[in-house]
Design a protein around this nucleic acid. Structure first.
Lengths: 348, 348
DNA sequence: ATGAAAGCGCTAACAG
DNA sequence: CTGTTAGCGCTTTCAT
């Protein structure tokens, strides 16, 4: 009585034998296809339980040509060389965590789990394309950290289903979700003006990022509407340190400023530090408004008034759009723009 | 002359025909098996290029019984009900980002991409087990947010290869990486004492988390060695808000304290806020030491002295251990404990 | 309503 | 060194 060393897992065949039916019937029951006698269904279910059967996904994919998996790709815009070989920084950004959380919350109830990929060089982008072409995933959810990311174009060229987190910088037949950045920045401007602030400045994000440009433009436009055609600007790169430096510069230019809008919460937190060092009270002397409503907004002292960016909802929508496209590949690219809202806290 | 509607991707057969050889030979070339005539190798490579061939992973997995994929599972300890149905919070923690970054940086050069999973209820844990049993991934990298996570036990019981981020609370034949938490906390104690601090308190993490318990014990032990057998403790839950509340309590108990060790940087940041509100200067009146050396440590004002937790390296090591186990399933469970180090910044 | 049989694309003995 | 041959486990016509 020798037992197999590595008892290979039960197959459909085993279940069929145990239930006294054919493989085809077991397959039907498992895949929830009707036209199966209830009594037989029950027998099959029993056999599945007692054999501990679990369908082999590879075999299934081979015939259905579907993996039931999607890739979640975080992509930069680097060139040939690996400028940032270590992906830790990118994933450490709470923004990425929110995207991942939103994607998972939508996909998981459907039994779909995303494959995490990271691409920032020409080589790694090709890796992503090859990976998808090999049928490791049915499609991709793409989050670019820079506007000029070539990956969306590559995906479209390869005919691979994908959905982007933001409008591509070049027009492309591809679906995406995005935020009404201009409107969001406008909310911040309206709020500062309504609060009686007259000497307002802004800390922008890196201007090669479309979202950063939109937030700046939206802020400037809204301020102009309120009779403030000129707004001092200092450019940051979305990090706390850059926000701090930008605030220093602004304070140097205009010591009497009484309000500042930062294009994200993290830079606003940096600005808070600079203001404190210069003896300005927030919001007494200077009102501060951030953008995103990220964890940084509430971790600050004082907590930040900010523009809410429904990242999780948007990420979930990406999943929805991708699945819709997979169900009906003929359907055209669509987009969904989310509306931001203002969250007022102690900093303004 | 009609073309196929959906031109099905080229197969090995197509490449073989184009190269004028057999499927087996093409397979050999593609899988880098030697004993193939260099001239034929070249011909095959050419044929691959002109057909645009990409191997079908499902077909490959079906016969090799390997997917070349691993699961990265973030797991809580919840019971039957979904107390925290939304995974966004968990993924938003920068700690998770560091783990993901470390895992990806190690796995990606090997062409392996992790599947992101999240489990916090009995049901979702079963989902993870089922997913692995279906052969969607060869093994799991598991990060538990609580000590009493049942998932490691389930994985062992199912005979699924896995590596944990921390020592399991129950002894289990499973590999893991961990940090010498006690030693790390000891470093913090030594530093505070060396800096002349005499009235030192600590903010612990949630005491149902083994790492939090170890950090507290390590700190108390080291302080005792330095002649301070009693250290006031306030328990937090690793969030900034909890750190702030804990600091308030400590200040109430011992208004003259001159040093505090928080079991993570985020709570230390909260403590900083409370200290500022109470008019204490850091480090002038009170020295503050955190733990982890996370992004929170440098985002604070002043930046935190902290105990470095090499999360990325540890995550990479998890990957290495898992792959080693997959290569040789007979090999026993191993563990690797990393040593922390002190990073001195302005807060102490 | 159920079963028989034909592959999905690939790797791995086994011959030659 | 190369080709032939069997499947891997599953879904899916096609008969019955």
């Amino acid at each position: 009585m020798s037992e197999g060393r590595t008892p290979s897992p039960p197959t459909l065949e085993d279940v069929a034998r145990a239930a006294g039916v054919s493989r085809a019937t077991v397959s039907r029951v498992i895949n929830g296809i009707r036209n199966v006698d209830p009594a037989i269904q029950e027998a099959v279910r029993l056999a599945v339980a007692e054999t501990g059967y679990a369908p082999n996904q590879a075999a299934r994919s081979l015939v259905t040509r579907r993996t039931g998996t999607v890739a979640l790709v975080v992509s930069g815009a680097g060139g040939e060389s690996a400028e940032n070989p270590f992906p830790a920084q990118v994933f450490a950004d709470p923004f990425f965590g929110r995207v991942a959380g939103g994607v998972v919350s939508f996909l998981r109830p459907l039994g779909i789990h995303p494959i995490l990929m990271f691409a920032e060089t020409a080589e790694t982008r090709q890796q992503v394309v090859a990976y998808l072409r090999q049928g490791n995933a049915d499609g991709a959810l793409l989050v670019s950290t820079h506007g000029a990311d070539p990956l969306p174009g590559l995906l479209v060229a390869a005919g691979l289903p994908a959905v982007l987190f933001a409008r591509p910088s070049e027009p492309l037949p591809i679906s995406y979700v995005d935020l009404a950045h201009r409107a969001g920045a406008g909310l911040a401007a309206d709020h500062l003006v309504a609060a009686g602030r007259r000497r307002v400045a802004t800390i922008s994000g890196p201007l090669d990022v479309p979202a950063a440009r939109d937030r700046l433009a939206g802020f400037q436009e809204a301020m102009a509407v309120h009779g403030h055609p000129f707004v001092p600007v200092a450019e940051g790169n979305f990090t706390a340190a850059s926000g701090e430096r930008a605030m220093e510069r602004l304070l140097g230019e205009q010591p009497g400023l009484d309000g500042v809008f930062a294009a994200n919460d993290v830079m606003a937190a940096g600005a808070l530090a600079a203001l404190r060092r210069h003896g300005r009270r927030v919001p007494g002397d200077v009102a501060v408004v951030g953008f995103d409503d990220s964890s940084a907004a509430t971790a600050c002292v004082p907590p930040l008034t900010t523009v809410r960016h429904p990242v999780e909802d948007m990420a979930a929508e990406m999943g929805r759009l991708l699945l819709a496209h997979l169900d009906d590949p003929a359907q055209r690219a669509t987009s969904k723009i989310f509306q931001p809202s203002l969250v007022v806290r102690a900093s303004s």
